[in-house]
Amino acid sequence: MKEPKIVAFLCNWCSYAGADLAGVSRLQYPPNVRIVRVPCSGRVDPLFILTALKHTDGVLTAGCHPGDCHYTSGNLVARRKFTLLKSLLEFVGIEEKRVQFDWISAAEGNRFAARIRDVTEEVKGLEPWDRWGGRQDG
């Protein structure tokens, strides 16, 4: 299949720094990912993820590990939101691997690169995504 496009919403304080570390450490990871930096994983409205799926094939959202949030509890509130989003998506028949979440700290460049590799491979392994019924190439 065509190379899938993946969007990654990364929190400014941990996961984006983790991606940065992966870069300066010259770790290889697939170029399928497009990174969107957000202030906190708590800023990620489900709408962002659903809208991203209109134009791309998979979404990864990552934030600080629980307990490490720059704003104390942004990721903990986000956790409940993501739980519900994920279960709703699964309920309406969207594959589990299409929308993924992870906690990635600023020190985890390796984890970031590995996660991008996994997400890319896993999305490639799924049936082609219909982009909410409006698939156009690109």
């Binding site: 990864l60 629980p66 307990g67 509890s73 903990l76 509130v77 956790r79 409940r80 939101k81 993501f82 739980t83 519900l84 989003l85 994920k86 279960s87 993924q100 979440f101 992870d102 906690w103 996660r115 996994d118 997400v119």
Partner: peptide, 15 residues
Amino acid sequence: PLNTYDPGDPEPFLA
């Protein structure tokens, strides 16, 4: 429930 959290909340959504 969505205005609050519990430190021990389940994380079934994680990769």
